[in-house]
Design a binder for these strands. Structure first.
Lengths: 190, 190
DNA sequence: TACGTCATGTAAGTCGTTACATGATTGG
DNA sequence: CCAATCATGTAACGACTTACATGACGTA
């Protein structure tokens, strides 16, 4: 899935500027499974225009920065479907510096890892909120599925991280308490 | 987290060959958050050796292919901790061609997406089994945490995908059946 | 005997990021 | 008025992947 295909795919949903595409991929509700920067999107868009897979409308409204609105052509749509049919999707690949970092949590100041966990938890909470919001307004079934995937995944991670944080915070002396008591305490905290 | 740091990190656990490192990162129980190929690992290892951050032992047992066993030096350990302290981990980045593909599920033969789901489900099941296995034998707390993260995440995804597959398979006529009946049918299938 | 696994390495090339350059508008 | 956001683009650079080259051992 290179940037060309990504642009084609996103434009198949609606007309957009390069700026919009970047936002969708890197910050929007598709950002949990793709990414692209301006430096790759703009060249890809010119290339696709040259090939007739998208068209470009120069919009120069006075009082607004000029924008280029790209639309996918029927040829572009055909190419997209062809690309998807030709080769099946490669394996998912994730890079988490956070998890790599966590591997050495015992060799670093304890407060540092704790702070990192807290930060991560808050980031993920925000992400989930955004995805839920998007899902509520989304009619398109496949997009709904893809966003729901992100929600499910991030909720599991959030839960895992939160549980781990509680473990870190619970003093060692409480470790041997009966499970029931621990449960009660957790409920009190919420 | 470049390949240099990755090698340093993995070697901080135990001595290894480049071949082993690649396996750990790309197939082993760290593969859900990092990745590296031979083409980047071998050069990184020579570079690190040149800098004195790792040492290399040529092992040439007759009847076995010669191997180079790398060990991290105390200097290497210090550098690793320094790297981790200096800059905090960047954001996690995931690329899922599967999810991108799923966005266009309605524009492709229905059987094709179904087959893809089934395949993905089986891959994830295997992955979870492997991670669980690794976790059972793992004493090192931080590794345990990182692997547990992978288990939690993949179980959520597995569950999401399985539920979705069942939805696809349930004929439209059954959609309005009482929930209890659907549950019974599902249990019968297993 | 042929294939899979162990094992190392290089060279060419792809792909994409980072950083820079530019400039208008909007909101606090 | 200053910062953030909207908006487009390029050039240099870097990191990594792919494909190739090589070879020995074990096993079905």
């Amino acid at each position: 899935m290179n940037v060309r295909t990504l642009c084609l795919g996103i434009l198949s949903f609606s007309d957009m500027t390069g700026y919009d595409i970047r936002k969708m991929a890197s910050e929007g509700h598709f950002s949990h499974f793709c990414e692209a920067s301006y430096g790759s999107i703009y060249p890809a868009l010119s290339q696709l225009t040259g090939e007739g897979l998208v068209t470009c409308l120069h919009e120069t409204e006075p009082g607004k920065p000029p924008r280029k609105i790209y639309s996918i052509t029927s040829e572009g749509r055909a190419t997209l479907v062809q690309l998807l049919n030709n080769d099946e999707p490669g394996p998912d690949r994730c890079k988490s510096e956070f998890l790599f970092y966590s591997l050495f949590a015992d060799q670093l100041p304890a407060s540092q890892f704790r702070a990192l966990l807290v930060k991560k938890i808050s980031e993920i909470s925000d992400k989930i909120d955004g995805l839920r919001e998007a899902m509520a307004h989304c009619e398109h079934e496949p997009s709904h599925f893809a966003i729901g995937y992100g929600v499910a995944l991030n909720e599991a991670v959030l839960n895992y991280l939160t549980t781990h944080l509680e473990k870190l915070d619970r003093p060692a002396s409480q470790k041997d308490k009966p499970a029931e008591n621990q449960l009660l305490e957790l409920e009190d905290e919420q």
